[in-house]
Structures are given as C-alpha cells and as structure tokens.
Design a protein around this nucleic acid. Structure first.
Lengths: 349, 349
DNA sequence: GTGAAAGCGCTAACAT
DNA sequence: ATGTTAGCGCTTTCAC
C-alpha cells in the first residue's frame, strides 16, 4: 500500500526498530527499552507482550544507537592487537582475552600487525573509530606516545607481551630476561661453553630482554664473550634455519643453541636435522611449541604462559573500566623450564 | 567555570566531536564531515584548516554515530565464529578473513564456540546487536534455521568448513569425503587391511563426510567391515589417545590408523608412542599439523587449505555486500596428500 | 563551496 | 507502571 517504505536491496532490507516492536506490542518505546534492558517497573504481563512482539519481528536491539545516548557510553567491545592471529602464542592470548571478555558480554576485535608499526597505527585508529572500550596490544612500534591522548581521555590501554615505551600504561609481560638466563644456566650446567643465541629483531623489547638475560648468564658463568655467537634480527623460520646452518658449517660450531622465539626454534630444529646434528647439539627454545614432546629428542623449552598473559591483561582493562585509577601496573608472569631432552645433550668431546 | 560539563571519570573523559572540530576550524559541521569522508566541494585551504583542527584535538570520527544516518548503514565490521581462536586451523582461517577484510577497511570480530550450540546463538546475537555487515561461521548447531530471518533481511551469511543445514546460504568447505577416501586408498595401496577410523563428534558435518569417505573407500577396496574399527565422538587429544590405546591393547589391533582431525591426530601420535608402535603402525591424519615433518617418522596427512577457505568465505561475503544476489554458492576446496613417512609404513606381517 | 535543519535508533530526564 | 520530549554524533537534504 504505502510506497514510502519500499526498498530495492536484495533482501527486504528492513530491520525492525524498537518503535516497531512498541507498536506491535501496543506500548511506548520506553517500555520496550525497559524490557530489553531488564529495567524495573514493568508488569510481567506487559513485559511478555513486548518479548512476544520482539520475537515475532526477530528484533535485535541496536547497541550502537543506544550507546549514543547511554550514560556510560560503553560499546562492550575490546580491541586486541597481536603479531598474527595465526601464531599459536597469539592464539592462546586471544582465547584468554575472549574468555575473560565473554563473561562480561564484551566482544573482541582482533587484528594482526606482522610487526609493522604502520599497521598498528591504522588498526588502533580503526578500533577507536569503532569506540572500543579498551585496547590490549602487543605493540609493533618503538614508541607509543601517539596513544597518550587516548590514555588521558580514560581509555584503558594494556600492553601484553611487550613493554610500552614513552607512555605509562599497564603491561603484562613474561619474565624474558629471567627465562633466558635460566636457559643458559641449564645449558652451562650440562657442561656447554660454546653457545649460540638466535634472536628476533632487535627493536622488539622481548628480544632485547631475552638477549640481556642470555648475556648476563653467560657472564655469570664465566664464559668468554668470544665463545658465544649472538645472531639477531631473525624473524621467521627460514632466516633462523639459514643462520644456524651457517654456524654449524663454520668453524667453532656451537655445542648448544638458545633460540629466543617459537618460530626461530622451529627454524633451528630444521637446521639441526638438515645437518644431522640434532642428537649431538643441545637446544633450548624460548616459548613452547606444539608436539615438542614427540620429537626425538624432545625439545626442552622455557615455556611462557600466554593464557595468563591474556587473562591478566583483560582483567587489567576491566579493572580500569571499573574505576581503578591507580598508577600503571607492570605484571611479570614467570616462565617454566620444561625438560624434554634436547637441552640435556652434553657437549661433543 | 561552567559546571555543566564536569565529569568524575578517571580520565578527563571527553572525546572531541565533529562539532568541536568545526568550531576550532571556524567552519560548519557539514564541512568537517566532507573533509573527514573525502567528499568533494571543499577548497584545499578549508580542508587543511579542518585537518589541522582534527589533528590538534586528536579527533577520531564516531563510525557508529555516522552509521545511524548513513544511507548504506554499513559498520564495516564482520563477525567470525570458529571452534576456537586457539586452534591452528581456525587461526589460519581467521588470518585469511582478516587479510581480505583489512583491504576494505573492515574490522573483524572473532568468537570461539567450542562446538557449543548455545554459545553460537549467543555469539551471533552479540554480533547482530553490533550490526556486523556479514557473518562467517563454522557452525556448532545442527540446524541454522534461526538465521533465516537475518538472511532474508539481506545480511550475508557464509558457512566455512562445515555445511549449513535447514538454510540455503553460501558455504566454503574442504573436500572431506574425497580427502578421507584418498587417505584410505593410500593405506590400502601399502597393503593394509585392518584399519581404524578415529573421528570427531558425529553431529559435526565434516566428521560425517570424512567417515562416509572413509567407509566408501573401504568398501571400494573390498575390505570386510569387520576388519575395520570405527571410533567416533572423540573430540580432543586425550579422548583420542585413550581410544587408540584401547585398540592397540585389544585383539585385532589395526595396522593402519586414519585420524580425522588435527587434535585427534595428535592424540593418536601420543598413543602410538605410549605403546612404542609408531614405527610399525601406519597413520594418516586429516588436516596438517605443525612440525609433522620433524617427527620420526614424519606424519603423512591430508592437508586442508584453511587460508583458501577463509579467503574465499570473505570474498563471498563481500560479493553479497556488493549486490551479488545469485543462488547460494557451495565452494569445495580440495585437499592435498602430503607423504612424510607414517602413512607408508607397511603392515606388520 | 558552505551551512542549517531534520532525523537515524536508542536512552535520559521528566512527565503523568 | 508507562509515556513524552529532547538529544547523543553524525549524515542527509536542501537552502544559500
């Protein structure tokens, strides 16, 4: 009859509004609003009429429209920035954040940065335009001063895995230096003196701390620096593999290797296999890897606890949203040495 | 001075609006809107004044507020539902969806279902309330008729990995039956007759198709059904491990095993190691697993291509959003047999 | 090239 | 217990 509301989209396009629900139920919009939001002062009977109407129309309230006027202006949405959602470590962090958020009716946006600072800026902006209530990030930038205005505005920002720089904000990180030192001590205790460090891009704070922990322990063990190979700026499996192959083929091949990151560990494992040296070269990896226990030898690792990192980071966000105005927290999550065989191989004599 | 705008939140709480940017730039809001959205009819000079003001205030436009009145009503947001963001298969799908979406300025919500139908309903509702432009889901429900109203309304809904039921919608799935059959043929060609099938929950369509493919190939190979163990309703590593341990310890232990899912494969690998049977029992897994090439023997698998599934699913969503009103597509992505050793072990004689 | 007014779907504040 | 009015931050429409 009326041609006013005709649409030419592929579906019929129309989404029921609260007004339509109100009309069908024969009540005012505010009554519908009360029912949908579980507010008091509605008789059970009216409430039922409203719910029936909503059901009949397959009504879903528009959260964003409501937010525009709502006092707390919460979108019940979080933004998570990680290296890549495809990485097992990030997946575990993500899952923990999601679990903490789901209990509060909060949905999670995720974005992969591939350690590209430019992507971080864009992803943060995309999330802020969507008015996320908080941000959890494994930063890819050297300094995060660009977040200062947003932080001052009251948006909870929590750094996970990597520490912030140029900004005082909550951070939840692994004990990178301690874990790396523990790996070295473990190798030294098995008699090794010629060690190699295979590390990630130097600009990444975790890589820096792991390297420092490694070198501190080397010094503490009285090992001359000349006996140690420090290879950095590796960033994926293939570069790590090639780097270790070069070491194995060169003079003074290490008798023990510390690989400072999961992909680097996998690259190192490949290199050792390539040269048939996996049974006479010790290896300890930082961050646990899938199936490490089924390899021969099993891969000894310094395991991180990504579930804890993610959960605690999410809890920090919610604490801030709940009004916690205390100074920036820095939470350090311990690492765990998991002995499986590769780290206990003695030096070749 | 004015106490009207005082807030008691921890930050100063105020977020600049387009109006404030307009005032600072000395122009009307509509002009700011034009600049922010890259619309024509603004002189370069005015545009610069607006951009300067926006920069000075650290202004981020409110996408949702704009959407309320905007003609296309697109939030530039997608909802992705997977088994768990912590699973490598889901991670790869997720990453592919994200990459396809990022190019279009679309952000992605992800949610883990743990194969719980109830969680699916809640997650879908949470996404619809946030007005996602489209939905990509690895469904956990037996029937998805509850999505019919939304689909008719024009919201693109694409099923990935598992086929829909009770609803005609786009679907992108692996060739589950074909891949499973290929696994069986491979095992039969190496002389096996006593096979075992270790499968996921029967309610899951992929599990069903893999089982059918397995049984078809068994029949095609002239193997009597009595020589085959079919174990179903396994759903994680530990249940798979225990199930295979029981088979290995029982009479008529299989000489070859087909594990129909990545976690099941890992459980099976553990069981074989537990009994020291990994070198004399053949194994082919469905879905590739990390480090499969470094195990001894290497793990032969029917690899899926999760990146393709995710990318194609996202492309379907965008095609629908761009007006494609053709009947529901069903895209089948092939699988790849990767020979690594475990699948080529001959039967014990 | 620019801006004022109306309105998107909802909630706050204030009726009744 | 329920409804009415204004307004959230933006885009649309239309005037200049």
């Amino acid at each position: 009859m009326t041609s006013l509301s005709e649409r030419q989209v592929s579906g019929n396009g129309s989404r029921p509004t609260m007004r339509q629900v109100a009309e069908l139920a024969g009540v005012g919009v505010k009554t519908v609003s009360r029912v949908i939001n579980g507010e008091p002062n509605v008789t059970a009977e009216t409430a039922q009429r409203v719910l029936d109407a909503a059901r009949a129309l397959d009504y879903e309230p528009d959260l964003h429209a409501g937010n525009l006027r709502r006092a707390d202006r919460r979108t019940r949405t979080l933004g998570l920035l990680v290296g890549s959602v495809d990485n097992p470590f990030a997946g575990a962090v993500h899952r923990a954040v999601e679990d903490a958020a789901a209990g509060r009716g909060v949905a999670v946006f995720a974005s992969s940065l591939d350690d590209d600072p430019q992507r971080e800026r864009e992803a943060v902006s995309a999330f802020l335009r969507r008015r996320v209530d908080g941000l959890i990030l494994t930063t890819a930038t050297a300094k995060q001063t660009y977040l200062l205005p947003e932080l001052r505005r009251g948006t909870p920002i929590v750094f996970v895995d990597r520490e912030p720089s140029g900004i005082e904000a909550d951070a939840v990180v692994s004990d990178n230096a301690g874990g790396a030192a523990r790996a070295v001590e473990h190798l030294l205790s098995h008699g090794h003196r010629r060690l190699a460090y295979l590390g990630d891009l130097r600009g990444i704070t975790t890589a820096h701390h792991r390297r420092e922990g490694f070198l501190d322990a080397i010094r503490g063990g009285g090992i001359p620096a000349a006996d140690v190979h420090v290879i950095e700026d590796l960033h994926d499996e293939s570069s790590a593999r090639e780097a270790l192959l070069r070491l194995l083929d060169g003079p003074d091949a290490p008798t023990a290797v510390f690989s400072a990151q999961n992909l680097i560990t996998i690259g190192a494992l490949h290199a050792l296999r390539d040269r048939g040296r996996h049974r006479d070269t010790a290896l300890v990896g930082f961050d646990d890897i899938e199936l490490a226990d089924l390899l021969e030898p099993g891969v000894t690792v310094i395991a991180q606890h990504p579930e804890d990192l993610g959960r605690i980071a999410a809890e920090r966000v919610f604490a801030r949203l709940d009004g916690d105005a205390s100074p920036a927290h820095r939470v350090v999550v311990g690492t765990t040495l998991i002995v499986r065989g590769s780290g206990e191989i003695p030096p070749r004599s």
